[in-house]
């Protein structure tokens, strides 16, 4: 009985070892070897950056040579242990905020970010003015004498 149990455990250990050996821990992308977690982080960064050759594509999606180079730079920096902010800043420092697909909220982009609010306020103002115009002019009430006359006529 004991021998069977030991054999079972050995078999299980071998199975796990084979499974572990078959699961890749690192992958090679754009000339850089990195772990799966690092690759995920690099993809997250690359998806936020604009490929400057095919300008409506992300660095991750573009087939342009420059985008491939960007992906290599991002991955090398991820492996080196830089934070996401540091890597994005590296790109912005060289190519300006145009490299960001989502423009940051800075004085230059205030009009861009607040235009929905401005449009909403303008629309509200138009509605308010139109409603005030359409409201029937309030007529002055009847005077004391008029009310007496009305009573006379009606009676």
């Amino acid at each position: 009985m004991k021998r069977v149990l030991i054999l079972c455990f050995l078999g299980l250990a071998v199975t796990f070892a084979i499974a572990a050996a078959d699961t890749p821990v690192t992958i090679l992308r754009d000339g850089v070897t990195l772990t799966i977690a690092q690759e995920k982080r690099a993809e997250h960064i690359g998806n936020k950056l604009r490929c400057l050759v095919c300008q409506n594509e992300t660095v991750e999606n573009s087939q342009a040579g420059l985008a491939k180079q960007f992906r290599g730079i991002i991955r090398r920096r991820v492996v080196r242990g830089e934070t996401n902010t540091q890597i994005v800043d590296f790109m912005v420092h060289r190519y300006g905020i145009f490299v960001l697909l989502k423009p940051p909220l800075i004085p230059l982009t205030w009009l861009l970010w607040f235009s929905p609010v401005i449009a909403l306020l303008a629309g509200l103002m138009v509605v308010l003015i139109a409603r005030r115009r359409r409201a029937p002019p309030s007529l002055p009430g009847l005077s004391e004498a008029e009310r007496d006359r009305l009573k006379d006529i009606l009676s």
């Binding site: 400057l52 050759v53 420059l66 180079q69 960007f70 730079i73 060289r94 190519y95 300006g96």
Partner: peptide, 12 residues
């Protein structure tokens, strides 16, 4: 390698 070009902000 094109690395210097990237440091200059060159994209093509």
């Amino acid at each position: 390698s094109g690395r210097v070009a990237i440091n200059w902000g060159v994209y093509g």
